[in-house]
Amino acid sequence: MLVYTGKRLVLALLVAFTISVLSFSLLFLAGDPAAAIAGETATDQEIERIRTMFGFDRPIWLQYLEWVGRAIQGDFGRSYYFGMPVTELILSRIPVTLTLAGSAMAFALILGIPMGVIAALYPNSIIDRVALTIAVCGQALPSFWFALMLIVLFGFMIPILPPSGSESWQHFIMPTVVLGYYATPSLMRLTRTGMLEVLSADYIRTARAKGLFPRTVLFKHALRNAVIPVVSVAAVEFGFMLGGSIVIETVFALHGTGYLAWESIRRADFPTVQALILVFSLFYVVLTFVSDLLNAWLDPRIRVA
C-alpha cells in the first residue's frame, strides 16, 4: 500500500509540474501581456515601460522559474484588476466553490447510488424505468436553462429561495440541485450496471449460502464491489463540477472561484487567471490521487499494482 501510494504521489507531482508550465505559458499564448495590461489607447513607449516594469523583457525560462518560485510560496502576484494579492483573492473565493461542488456531489451520490441500487434490484420494473427517464432527461437538459427555470419557479413565482448571491445556505440550494443533477445520471447508471453484475457473482451466492441477512449480502458483499467504478467516476465528476461551477456560479451570482475566473478572463487579469488554472488543475490532481487511494482501499487487488 505504501509503495502504491508513493507511485501515485510521484505521478501526481509530474502532472502538477506539467500543468504549471502550461498555465504559465498561457500568459504568452494569449498575446503580448504588456500590451494587454497597458490597454488599447496606450503608446508604444508606455507599453515598453510596462514591459520592463513587469519584467516581460527577460528570458521566458527565467520568468517561469521566478513565477514557480513565488507560486510555491503561495505568491501569485497581484490582481491587475483588484490590486490585491491573487492568493488572498482566490482563498476568499474557494470556500464558496468547494461548498457548492461538495454539496452538489453529496446530492448526486445520495440520489444516484440508492436509485442505482433500487434499479438493479428490480430491473425493468417501474422504479427502474422512472430512474432511467430521470437519467435521460438529466443528460438532455442544458444546465443554464434548468438553472433559469429553477430561478423563475422558486425565486419568483413561488419565492421560497433567494435567486442570487452567496450569503446564506439557502443561496446554495438551487445551485447544488442544478450542478448535482448532472452528475446523478452517470453515477446512477454506473451503480445499476455494477450492482447487476455483482449480484450475479459467485461470491454473492456464497454469501447467501452462509445464511447472511439480505442487508449484509446487499451492502457488505454487493455494494462494496459495485461502487468501485463509481468512485473513479465520482472523482472525475467532482472535477467537472468545479469546472461546471463557472456557469452555475455566474448564473446564480455565487461569489466563488468559477465566477472569479469568468470575471478575470473578461478583464484580462492574467495573474488571477494563471493562478486559477493552476488551482483548478491541482484540484483535479488531488482528486485523482484521492480516488486512486479510495479505489485501492475498496479493491485489495489493486494495491499490489
Partner: peptide, 10 residues
C-alpha cells in the same frame, strides 16, 4: 468455482 466464490474485497 473456488476462484470466484470468495469476495475479493474482504
Amino acid at each position: 468455482e473456488p476462484m470466484t466464490s470468495l469476495n475479493p474485497a474482504y
